[in-house]
Amino acid sequence: MSSTPPLIKGRGARSNATGRFESRIREAFDDGWTLEDPEPAQLTTVVLPDKAKTIINRNNSPDIGFDRSINPYRGCEHGCIYCFARPNHAYLGLSPGLDFESRLFFKPEAAKLLTAELSKPGYRPRYIQVGADTDPYQPLERRLRVTRQVLEVLQAFRHPFSVITKSNLISRDADILGEMGRAGLARAAISITTLDRRIARSMEPRAATPQRRLDAVRALSEAGCPVTVMFAPVVPGLTDHELEAVLEAAAAHGATSAGYVMLRLPLEIADLFQEWLATDHPDRADRVMSLVRQMRRGKAYTSDWGVRGRGEGPLAELVSARFRAARKRYGLDGPRMEADLTQFRIPPKAGDQMSLF
């Protein structure tokens, strides 16, 4: 097997290892081709419908600020090499590597399922996070509009929600996000991992450029939707030095708050990420992984509640202190908007009798 996997143009993962639940294992081998030879055809993206029976996912994790979420898509064409959702593709009998970013699933009945769930007599509203797993504004959304339809339902029910993305496509829905934001029912989070176009292109090959994400921050802010910028993930030895610059740029474009998450490398992501380092940043690969292990008790990852998103030790504490100082310096430490659950209502259907009150 070649020590340097071949680069697939426009993709983040460098390999396509077999999912961990499969009985047969695929293994790459060196067939003599090199990067100097003509490039093969680009990897084709396959899109299939996901026949979901429900649309609202529930969790009891103490590490995140919501217990309900909606994911319009499975897999993500952005191809971010660090994506924590990659291992989920193994449950589908697919690889968390290239399959994750080229074999995609969408939920065509998402809006219909959501309408049915919100209309149940016993339903009680709580904040819903749209895009907790894969990006709800990946390139597919431009033509499929599943996320747009979900937001339209949430708006009709006056249901509070938040949405997270690294795509400028979210600006398309500024009409909904602005109106709901001004009513205290919506907020947005935009992930900006780096301001370096070269690193962003390599690490997140099909996501929007850093400047386009900042443009989205401004567009949503001007529309009236509160925007949080997530400096996530923080990659020690590669992007951590940009923390203050990202927060400064976010504030200048209208963000009202900020957050960060330290690089997480669970399950297959550890090998995928190290393959990527070896091909794209061989001069920093050893240092980056050494710093990661310093924050993870000598491992590539630790999954303990409370520390998995922050890391441990002196380096993790230094990043945390820098973040708190920068957040305060740039005015991104204001109070978080609380969910207004009082506006929730089931909209009347066609033919319903109008209320006298």
Rank of each mutant, 00 (worst) to 15 (best):
L332H: 01
E317L: 12
N168I: 10
A219F: 00
S257P: 01
K51I: 08
H253M: 12
L243V: 06
C225I: 07
E268I: 03
R11V: 04
L243T: 04
H241P: 01
A28W: 10
R11N: 12
N71K: 03
D175V: 08
L356S: 15
I64Q: 11
S162L: 02
A245N: 09
A189I: 01
F106S: 02
P96F: 03
M295C: 13
T279H: 09
Q211V: 11
R74D: 00
R284C: 02
P160W: 05
M289L: 15
M337N: 02
R74I: 03
I81Y: 00
R187M: 09
F21M: 10
L185K: 04
V217T: 12
T194F: 08
R145Q: 14
Q42E: 10
E27N: 06
P38M: 10
V163F: 03
V150L: 06
V307N: 04
L177A: 03
R145A: 08
E242T: 07
V246E: 02
T165V: 06
Y301I: 00
L220I: 12
G10Y: 09
A326V: 02
R68T: 12
Q149H: 14
H241T: 09
A278R: 13
P236V: 00
V288L: 03
G298S: 09
E244H: 07
R264N: 03
V319A: 00
R293C: 01
L332M: 07
R145I: 03
M354S: 14
A258P: 07
R86D: 11
P314I: 09
E141R: 11
K51H: 15
I176S: 02
C225P: 07
P49K: 09
D280E: 15
L341T: 10
S61W: 02
D196F: 08
Y73C: 04
A270I: 00
A41K: 09
V146S: 06
